[in-house]
Each structure stands twice: as C-alpha cells, then as structure tokens.
Amino acid sequence: MKHFFYLHGQSARTALLKLLRQPLGNLLNLLMLAIALALPVSLYLGVSSLQQWTGKLATTPQITLFMELSSEQADLAAVESSLKSHPRVASFRFVHKDVALKELEQRSGLNTISDGLGSNPLPHAFIVTPKTLEPAALDLLQKELSGLPMVELAQFDGAWARKLHALITLARQLTWLLASVFALAMVLINHNTIRMQILARQEEIAVSKLIGATDSFIRRPFLYHAAWQGLLAALLCWGLTAWLGHEANPALSEFASLYGVDAKLRALDAGEIAIITAFAMLLSMLGARLAADHHLRRQRRNQLP
C-alpha cells in the first residue's frame, strides 16, 4: 500500500514539475480553460444575485385584500389570524380605512375631500407579501385569500411577477446550457492537450509496454497532468470572476441606487469553489483518460498480426 501511494505521489509531483517547466505555453492553455469555466460561473453568480435583489425591491408583488364595507372587528381579527398562520405568507400589513383616506388626501392635495363625502367610502385592507414569486403559487394564494371571511377583492400585479419569474428562469436555463457547452469544451481541450503529449512520448510508451507496463501505469502521469490543469484553471476562474465582480459592482451599484436598492454581484463561497474545482479536475481527467485509452487501443491494434 505504501508503494502504491508512493507511485501516485511521484506521478503527481512529476506532472506538476512538467507544467512549471513550460510556464508560457501552459499558462495560455490554463487561461483558455479558466475562461471556459468563468463564463457560466459568472452567469450563475448573476442569476443568484438577481434572486437576492428581488427580495429587496420595493416592487415585490403584493396581494391587497380589500374588505367589505360592512366588515366588523371580528372579521378583521379572523383574517389577521389566517394570514399569520398561512405557510405561503411572508408578512402582511393592515391599513385602516381612515389611514387610507388620509393618504389619499395627501397624494391628491385635497385635504378637505373627506368633508364633502360625509362618510369614509374606502374599505379596510390587508397588504400581503408572499414568500414566493412563482406565478402558479401566487395564483393559488390569491384564490385562497379571496375566500377569507368578508374579503371582497384580492388583487395583485400578476403580470409583473410572471415577467420576473420568466427572466430568472431563462437566465437559469442559459446558465445550465453554457455550463454543458463549456464542460464539453474542457473535455475536448484536455483531450487534445494530452493527445499531443502522448504523441510526443509514443516511443517511450511503446518501450514501457514491451517491458510489461500496465495501461494504468501509462495513463497515470497524463491523468495527473490533467488534474493539475483542472485545479489551476479553477483557481484562475475564481480570480477572473472576482475581478469581473469588482469591476462591475461600481456601475451596478450606481444603477441599482436609482431603484433604492444596494445591489452588487456576490462572490463565490468556499463550498462553491470546492465544487467548481472538483468539477474542473474531473472534466480534465476525463479528457485525458479518453485520449490515453484511444492511443492504447490503437497501439494494440497495430500490434496484432
């Protein structure tokens, strides 16, 4: 077992030293891999940041429950109790009809409007903030709240919510599409890189096979070379996304301030960095494995009589 770990450690060390001996050529290759990773990762950060910002917007869809004019204190208490216990209600605010009339007078500039009306024609209202922006859930919540005692009308801006949900869904789908395309690109780039290395060392590989080297022994240095490439590319991707966020945040904050929101692109957390690194290493090793297996199969075919 000690010999097994020694061989793997030696292969990993040798592969790293070969990368460092050709810094310029390998740096260009690593930058290509890092950019392929950074594009979907940046879009992912943008989508997740957008989801956080929507919770801060003052225009978050709200359902307004207008009570019947004949509703009494017991009816208001029943509706309030139902809203407190509802699983899809994040928060709510009660607006007394007298307060609503005063706000109307202030907005219209007609401070004596109530004098000519005789009685307050406005109803009591509850302004409800839902927990989700998903359109189907909002439709269901509206129907449920409209059935509460003495609720005359349950109204909300469903079109705005659907547009926002559609935008986030589209961006999320584009993220997965880009991730799939660039994952394939990473495999192909590493496949081509390792194939060129194998061709440069094919005589060495042929001699190793003649003296009894196994396929796993021959593949091992190429797999470690690819693993180092994936690791370094993921670290470069982390740096690129951090730089992009740093450069974009001032302009983004200035734009968001127009809507009263403090918005900025979030950075990758430790868990996300670990997942991206593991993902990059696995894809790189997959490309190397495919290249090495292709060469070994072709070599066996050439040896057949």
Rank of each mutant, 00 (worst) to 15 (best):
S71T: 03
S71P: 01
E72W: 03
Q73D: 07
A74E: 06
A74S: 08
A74W: 03
A77Q: 10
A77L: 08
A78S: 02
A78K: 02
A78M: 02
A78I: 04
E80H: 09
S81M: 08
L83M: 02
L83W: 01
S85H: 13
S85R: 12
S85E: 14
S85Q: 12
H86M: 02
H86N: 04
H86P: 00
R88N: 15
A90E: 14
A90I: 12
A90Y: 07
F92D: 01
F92I: 02
R93T: 13
R93C: 07
R93G: 03
R93I: 12
F94T: 03
V95R: 05
H96K: 14
H96A: 15
H96Q: 14
H96E: 15
H96V: 13
K97M: 10
K97Y: 10
K97W: 09
D98K: 08
V99F: 10
V99S: 09
V99P: 03
V99Y: 09
K102H: 11
E103G: 09
L104H: 07
L104F: 14
L104S: 08
E105R: 12
R107Y: 14
R107W: 14
S108H: 14
S108F: 15
S108W: 15
G109A: 12
L110V: 14
L110H: 12
N111P: 07
N111F: 12
N111I: 10
T112C: 13
I113R: 05
I113F: 14
I113L: 15
S114W: 10
D115F: 13
D115A: 13
D115W: 12
G116F: 12
G116P: 05
G116S: 08
L117H: 07
L117Y: 07
L117Q: 09
G118I: 11
P121C: 10
P121S: 12
A125M: 11
F126I: 07
F126G: 01
I127F: 04
I127A: 05
V128Q: 01
V128I: 09
T129D: 06
P130C: 03
K131S: 10
T132C: 06
P135Y: 10
P135E: 06
P135L: 09
P135G: 03
P135N: 06
A136T: 15
A136C: 11
A137N: 06
L138K: 00
L138M: 06
D139A: 07
D139W: 13
L140V: 12
L140P: 00
L141I: 09
L141C: 01
K143G: 05
E144S: 05
L145F: 01
S146I: 05
G147D: 13
G147Q: 13
L148V: 04
P149F: 05
M150S: 11
M150C: 07
V151D: 02
V151S: 00
V151R: 03
E152W: 05
L153N: 08
L153R: 13
A154W: 04
A154V: 06
Q155E: 12
F156Q: 02
D157C: 02
D157G: 00
D157A: 02
G158D: 08
G158Y: 05
A159W: 10
A159S: 11
A161I: 04
R162P: 01
K163S: 09
L164E: 01
H165S: 15
I168A: 00
I168T: 07
I168P: 01
T169P: 01
T169F: 10
L170Q: 08
L170V: 11
A171S: 06
R172N: 05
Q173I: 07
Q173H: 11
Q173K: 09
